[in-house]
Every structure is written in structure tokens, then in C-alpha cells.
Simulated assay, not measured.
Amino acid sequence: MREILCADLNVQLFAKTIWDTELKNAIDDFQPEIIFLPIHPLTIETQFQLPESCHVVFVGKKNEEIENAFKQRNRHICNYLEDEQWIWDNANLTAEGFINYFYAHEKQSIYNKKFIITGYGRVGKRLAFALHHLGAEVIISVRSEHQLFEAKSYGYQIETFKQVMERQQDKNAYLINTIPFRWLAHEEASYFNKIYDLASNPGCLLHSEESAPANYVHSTSLPGLYFPQDAGYLIARAVQTQLALLEGEK
């Protein structure tokens, strides 16, 4: 990502996950016009305050303290994770990353395996498409009737959440969760061969503070794990798009 942006901007990288005095002083010395923050919010150890030179900040996941600091000064906040093209392209990388993860850890073929996907958003749709075309049996499970019958129209099997728990206790199905909501009880994990939770923290377990079931894996950030160059390119392109839009507003 840095190499792409360097073609148009003077870029300085600060490899930090904590907003502390050291990072604040380094940014004050650099006096940037644009600041790009990582996907996961920084841990704030000292007051979040940016130099007057900075008028645009790119953020990943929302951080109320950072957003409030910018709103008070009427500066631009751009959430690159809300860029529609980035969302779909990242969903493609996530689906391909899951396939890599499955091959590496299960040492098995996807062909003829049963996968239940909870959630039918962008990641769920791209996963269903990829697994189906590799010969897997794909079952979509969501609460939304609209999404259930949308999935059925594409040739996937469909089941409600209740049906999944009633019918899949043969323990031969792999569950892939894409819903960023706690809904799965620990004892229900035993209904499945393995659970791959692709949702952001805290994942789908109802009591995530407890030790996770042995067959549960929280597999996040798959694009960065398997395709760091491609993942960086997608974010850089989203940043360039947002900057072009801001330039057009002037």
C-alpha cells in the first residue's frame, strides 16, 4: 500500500498500534496533511490530538474518541472500510483466504464436504459461490426470509437457525459464521465438525470470555494473512478514490 501511495504523496510510516506520547511527537514533527490509521483502532494512552496541518484522516473500524476529536475541528473523516468496491473486493479475498486456510489446516479437499454458512452478506455470498464451484454442499442459514430465498434462487440449500440446530447434529458439517453477533452457545458447537468464525471480534460465541470449544477457530484478517500485497493494494485504491472525491468537492 505504501509503495502505491508514495507515487502521489510524501509518505511516512509509523509502525505503532498504540497512540502514546512517542507517536504523537513523531506525527507533530512530520506535520502531515493526511493521516491513515490501521483497520483496528489504536489503543489510546495519551490525549488524541493531531497537528493543525492535518485535515483528513482515514480510519478503519470506528473509534469514538478519534472521531470526536476530528468533528470538533471540522476535519474530514473517511472510513475506508465503507468503500463499496473495497467491501466486495475484500470479500473475494476473504473467500479465497478461507479456502487456503481450510486446505492448510484440514489437509482435505473441499469437494463433497458440507458447509453451513451463517450470514448472507458480501462475505457469505462470495464464500457460497467459491465453495459451490469447488463441489461442496452449501447450506445458507440466516434469519432474513428475503436472504434465505435469494440464496435458494442461486441453487443453495437453505435452513433457518432453528433448523440448523435440529438437523445438523450428525457432526459432519463445517460451520462458517460471517455474522458479527454473539448467537452460538458453547454446547451447540459440538453439533458441527468444526466452526470457522470469520466475523470480527468478539465473534459468534455467546460467552466468548470462556475458553473456546476445541472445534472452534476464530479466523479473522484472512486477506492480510494470505494476500498482504493484494489487501494493501485494495486499501490504497480506496484511499485514492476518497482523496479524489474530496478534491472534487473543493
Rank of each mutant, 00 (worst) to 15 (best):
I116L: 13
I116K: 03
I116C: 13
I117L: 11
G119P: 04
Y120H: 09
G121R: 07
G121M: 04
R122F: 10
R122V: 00
V123A: 02
A128K: 01
F129L: 14
A130E: 13
L131E: 12
H132P: 00
H132T: 13
H132W: 08
H133M: 05
H133F: 10
H133A: 01
G135R: 05
G135V: 10
A136N: 12
A136D: 09
E137N: 14
I139E: 00
I139M: 04
I140P: 03
I140T: 04
S141Q: 07
R143D: 02
E145N: 13
L148A: 13
F149I: 08
F149H: 15
F149A: 01
K152A: 15
K152S: 11
Y154L: 08
Y154A: 02
G155N: 04
T160D: 07
T160Q: 08
F161P: 15
E166Q: 15
Q168I: 00
D170F: 13
K171V: 02
N172K: 14
N172M: 09
A173K: 08
A173T: 11
A173I: 05
L175V: 03
I176P: 11
I176E: 10
I176V: 14
P180R: 09
P180A: 02
F181E: 14
F181T: 11
F181W: 07
W183F: 12
H186D: 10
E187Y: 08
E188R: 07
Y191T: 03
N193C: 14
L198D: 06
S200V: 09
P202S: 03
G203E: 05
L205K: 02
H207I: 10
E209F: 04
E210G: 00
A212Q: 10
P213S: 06
N215H: 07
S219N: 05
S219H: 00
T220K: 12
T220A: 06
P223R: 09
F227E: 01
F227Q: 01
P228N: 01
P228V: 06
D230C: 01
D230H: 08
D230V: 09
D230T: 15
A231V: 10
